[in-house]
């Protein structure tokens, strides 16, 4: 049995330690907000936080993740009210929406480490996340907006 601590909840799962975290989260734990896009850490649709870092769960094996603190999009906030989630809604960022769990999880690490990101910081943090619908201009806008919200302490 492998112990996974996901969103502050412990899950005991019976799985091959070589299984990527992505499939354990989706198929065995049943949290489907984390997406499969490429399987080789190219697109970022599968980003979750592992001890606070934006890891690509499609290449992160259970043996690395077990016993660690894992946060998925479902656990980013209780009421969909993380500044990024609010900003994403304000700016109507998503189109198809499939990549945005990963986009938001990447941006969340950015905002912790750079609370007032410049455009260059956003490039540096977000270039690992592909959006086929091309919502990039709005992702940028929403990250700036979320940073503002954070600064004002309103959320």
């Amino acid at each position: 049995m492998i112990k996974l601590n996901i969103n502050q909840k412990v899950h005991q799962i019976d799985a091959d330690p070589e299984m990527p975290l992505l499939w354990a989260i989706r198929d065995l734990v049943g949290l489907t907000g984390t997406k499969f896009g490429c399987g080789v850490a190219q697109c970022g649709a599968c980003v979750v936080h592992l001890n606070g870092e934006a890891v690509r769960s499609c290449v992160t094996k259970l043996k690395r993740a077990q016993g660690q603190q894992i946060t998925t999009i479902e656990g980013l906030s209780e009421n969909n009210d993380h500044p990024l989630q609010i900003a994403w809604n304000e700016v109507s960022v998503p189109q198809c929406g499939y990549c945005h769990s990963g986009q938001i999880m990447s941006a969340a690490v950015l905002l912790i480490e750079k609370p007032n990101p410049t455009d260059e910081d956003i490039d540096n943090a977000m270039a690992g996340n592909i959006c086929r619908c091309g919502t990039y201009p709005r992702i940028r806008k929403a990250i700036h907006m979320a940073a503002e919200m954070q600064k004002k302490g309103g959320v």
Binding site: L31, T32, G33, T34, K35, T72, I73, E74, L76, S77, N80, L84, Q85, W88, N89, S92, V93, P94, G97, Y98, H100, S101, I104
Partner: peptide, 11 residues
Amino acid sequence: TPMKTNGTAIF
């Protein structure tokens, strides 16, 4: 949008 920011949208 809200369901596409918290993982609840079902694809």
